[in-house]
Design a binder for these strands. Structure first.
Length: 424
DNA sequence: TCTGGGGTCCTAGGACCC
DNA sequence: TCTGGGGTCCTAGGACCC
């Protein structure tokens, strides 16, 4: 019986994941400073980190710090495959696995001791297996709470294991920097440091009202709880997405109508496709336009009915982007376009029969248009599923595979369909 | 020559309803 | 009939995470 409150939570985190995969795939990169990414560092090997290179840094800066650094393009399919393989190993020990990113997960091994031994023994076994079967270094933290386990795995890196025994939690936490707390970034750090709060111990000693004044109601509450070691979050195996989005950064581009529509068409194609394959649709569409100097604005609209079709999403996003640009007439160059769909619901089959009462002036004549679009998108989805996404473009599919186009499709022809082809 | 792409959550003001 | 309080939803912006 694992006593209540035992240290049964594991946080497993692959070390320098993308860079390690590159070194695994190409032995000539092992032991060398390697960066994945181009304009920006997505991941750095430990050999590169030794020079001060880190994720998020501009590529030119990484080269400045470490002239010998090797830049490699990302093998994203391999990242996904190997990340999945590691999660598979974790699931051999317990079904209570909460994956929080491609290379990181929480486990709760309470109740599996009789099968696999103590949490510490399980952590050792997991690390051995991942090393042997996948070829990657996995750091693991073991503790009584998620917060402590996560901090422990950070302390364990590289390629280590740290166990925080319940009796020693306080001593472990007290001297650590507030930066190790999940949710403390540069802005929060600056505000807390301004008030003399630098360690988790300082934070634990700060009165509630002071924290609230410094970082706001919710964050103050959360930080206070974590610092005083009151983390009661459970390991959750299934979490549903709250939003689905996509973005594309260009260096700098003149914002022309054509360019907006083709980029947003491309993004909408991806976002709407993912919505449909998840069986979901959303009511709120948000577009973000970023100008030079990282200044960005967002525009959003909430419809009365959820949508999941590529063309409708494209149209709404294009209007929103237009409105954002109209409000900033002096910004002619943009550096990024992003869109996301939120207020998600499960898409039920009946929706095909419903008219799409888009808000106010956005209402479209012919309520069958949206269901026709959905039918078209679904047809295209299945063609893509069979022949591959890249083998076929939106317009090509529509005209080659769907002869005898119904009335509703006419209006599609009025739009610049070529904009929906892959722009690359 | 300030930089990717995917997300989550919070805040604050205004609208609207009871 | 004009002064209150509470709740929810929407929009825009920000902070943060991997």
């Amino acid at each position: 019986m694992g006593e209540a409150g035992g240290a049964t939570i594991l946080h497993a985190d692959l070390d320098a994941f993308y860079a390690s995969v590159e070194q695994l795939l190409d032995p000539s990169l092992r032991g060398k400073p390697v960066v994945v990414g181009e304009g920006v560092v997505l991941a750095a090997s430990y050999d590169a980190k030794a020079f001060g290179v880190h994720a998020g840094m501009p590529g030119w800066r990484a080269r400045e710090l470490c002239p010998d650094v090797r830049f490699v393009g990302g093998h994203f399919r391999d990242y996904q495959r190997l990340g999945d393989q590691v999660i598979g190993v974790l699931r051999d020990f317990t079904p209570l696995v909460e994956r929080i990113s491609i290379d990181e997960a929480f486990l709760d091994v309470a109740g599996t001791e009789h099968l696999f031994g103590s949490p510490t023994e399980i952590a050792r076994a997991i690390r051995r297996r991942v090393r042997a079967e996948v070829g990657l270094a996995l750091s693991v933290g073991v503790a009584r709470t998620k917060h402590l386990a996560k901090i422990a795995s950070q302390a364990a890196k590289p390629d280590g294991l740290v166990v925080v025994e319940p009796e020693l939690e306080f001593d472990f936490l007290q001297p650590l920097s507030i930066d190790l707390i999940w949710g403390v970034g540069p802005a929060t750090h600056a505000r807390l440091a301004g008030a003399g709060i630098r360690t988790i111990g300082d934070l634990a000693a700060a009165p509630g009202p002071v924290l609230k004044r410094l970082v706001g109601q919710a964050a103050g509450h959360k930080l206070g709880a974590l610092a005083t070691n009151l983390d009661s979050r459970r390991v959750e195996t299934a979490r549903r997405a709250v939003s689905i989005g996509a973005q594309h950064a260009f260096g700098r581009r003149q914002a022309t109508a054509d360019m907006l529509r083709s980029t947003l068409g491309y993004l909408a194609d991806r976002v709407a496709g993912r919505l449909r394959s998840a069986g979901r649709a959303g009511r709120t569409i948000t577009v973000r336009v970023r100008f030079t100097g990282l200044r960005s604005v967002t525009r959003s609209v909430t419809l009365s009915v959820p949508i999941s079709t590529t063309l409708t999403l494209t149209e709404i996003a294009t209007e929103l982007a237009g409105s954002a640009l109209n409000d900033h007439p002096h910004e002619r160059e943009i550096t990024l376009l992003a869109m996301s769909v939120s207020q998600l619901v499960d898409e039920f089959p009946l929706q095909l029969e419903l008219s799409l009462g888009l808000d106010g002036d956005r209402r479209r004549s012919g309520s069958g248009a949206e269901s026709a679009r959905l039918a078209l998108d679904r047809a295209m989805d299945s063609i893509r599923a069979r022949f591959g996404r890249d083998s076929v473009g939106y317009a090509t599919v529509m005209f080659s595979e769907l002869g005898g186009v119904p009335e509703e499709f006419r209006e599609l022809a009025e739009h610049p369909l070529e904009s929906l082809k892959e722009p690359y």
